[in-house]
Design a protein around this nucleic acid. Structure first.
Length: 400
DNA sequence: AGGTATTCACATGAAACTATTCTCTGAGTTAGG
DNA sequence: TAACTCAGAGAATAGTTTCATGTGAATACCTGT
């Protein structure tokens, strides 16, 4: 049955360029990680004592997005666990991503997450944090073992919680007798360390490793090795890979982006019925990625955000050159009144605008107009042809 | 003319408040022995 | 009597409001020439 269906699907898309698309997705862990041998080696060296049952130094990894930090860390983690199992070393390494909301972005949730991974359980909420700490300690102490915790995107956790959490975590060892804890922090915020409390800094970053950005050539290598597995033979025209690499290198050498670019290019080529991926497909893919990011953000944004954005678009369409916070707020509050949605304070709207800026939907710059005060000057980053489409999405979802 | 002081229109921060979500607890209820 | 249900208590979060303070430069206001 399944085989028959497959045949149908196969004949449907004759121009199947992919061999295994998953290889290009970001969750995929490749066999070898090009141009990170040195970093991986360093990580391994630092963590190696764990295999002898000694507590390794706390480690701090930093580097821009898409430089292979997480990948390398996970790779070392897997290798070490394999080894530990073989040699019967009581070692646990747990990976926590502090960024994904709903999963863990507060002290409580992170702890709960760790506990869950260690095999315990706590209610998702409702317990005093101190009790969760105890539970965690109990769990670690329940047998003699070494626990290494990898905290990815650790900066997210800290600016949400305060660095007390890290301080506690690094100090826990003094309360443990049988077991020990090691912490690996990963961040892409290069200034993160400076902003930490000195006490935390010194204990957390006993060792530091910087993951440099990839240059275009290195990106090409990465793309080539993945393309070989993901695309069918001869599916890529010459120059496609270097074009992807070049685009990604322009945005601080982000490998993740390079891979996404390659994948979307392949999708586009496939859909257009081409039997090879051409260079122009990469250009289209590049635009599409930007566009999709904005569209999905806009679609999933809360109502109030959408209203604010709609106000901005209104102002743009009225042809005003410069748009300021005050103007937006006026239009916005009118809009709210008309559609009977409660009006938020200017303070809040100001924050919403700032968030749009962060998301890259708009480009806001704080300027001073002298006697006429200080405000944000706002430009939309959505290309003109897209504005209408976004506007209709907004109107539709807002149901105005 | 050149120098200071004001002043605007918000930005930016911190604290406090609100609604909501989730668990746990224990009283009251039910069903079976 | 054990199991079950369900309202209420407590804890925590997200999203906001309230209050407070900060700020860059165009303009108003001096000052001495």
């Amino acid at each position: 049955m399944v085989g028959e269906l497959d045949k149908i699907f196969d004949s449907f898309s004759q121009k199947n360029l992919f061999k295994n698309k998953a290889v290009l997705q970001s969750q995929y862990t490749p066999e070898n990680i090009p141009h990170r041998e040195k970093q991986i080696e360093q990580v391994a060296t630092i963590l190696a004592p764990a295999l002898r049952g000694e507590r390794p130094s706390n480690l701090f990894i930093y580097g821009q997005t898409g430089t292979g930090k997480t990948l390398s860390a996970l790779y070392v983690k897997d290798e070490m666990l394999k080894r530990a199992r073989r040699e019967n070393v009581p070692l646990k390494i747990e990976y926590i991503n502090c960024k994904y909301k709903k999963v863990s972005d507060t002290e409580y949730r992170i702890l709960a997450e760790i506990i869950k991974k260690l095999g315990g359980s706590v209610p998702a909420t409702g317990l005093p944090t101190g009790q969760v700490y105890n539970k965690f300690l109990e769990l670690v102490e329940s047998e003699k073992q070494l626990v290494i915790i990898i905290l990815d995107e650790i900066d997210q956790a800290v600016n949400k919680i305060s660095d007390n959490f890290l301080y506690n975590l690094t100090r826990l060892n003094s309360e443990l007798s049988k077991s020990q804890i090691g912490v690996i922090g990963i961040t892409n915020d290069l200034k993160f360390l400076e902003s930490l409390d000195p006490r935390v800094r010194s204990s957390l970053s006993e060792e530091e490793i910087l993951f440099p950005t990839y240059n275009a050539l290195q990106l090409q290598d990465i793309l080539k090795s993945r393309a070989a597995e993901s695309f069918k033979e001869n599916a890529l025209e010459d120059g496609v890979i270097s074009k992807c690499a070049a685009y990604a290198a322009r945005t601080h050498g982000d490998a993740r982006r390079a891979l996404a670019l390659l994948m979307v290019s392949g999708d586009i080529a496939e859909r257009m019925g081409c039997d090879r991926v051409k260079i122009e497909h990469v250009d289209m893919a590049n635009e599409k990625i930007d566009k999709d990011k904005i569209t999905s953000f806009v679609e999933s944004a809360p109502r109030q955000f959408q209203l604010v954005l709609l106000s901005i678009i209104d102002l743009i369409e009225k042809g005003q050159g410069n748009i300021f916070t005050g103007d937006i707020y006026n239009i916005y509050s009118d809009l709210c009144l008309k559609s009977k949605i409660e009006v938020l304070t200017q303070r809040r709207v100001s924050d919403i605008i700032a968030e749009f800026d962060m998301a890259g939907v708009i480009n806001a710059r704080v300027i001073s107009k002298g006697r006429h005060g200080r405000t944000r000057e706002i430009k939309l980053t959505i290309p003109d042809q897209e504005i209408k489409k976004i506007k209709s999405i907004l109107i539709e979802t807002l149901n105005i």
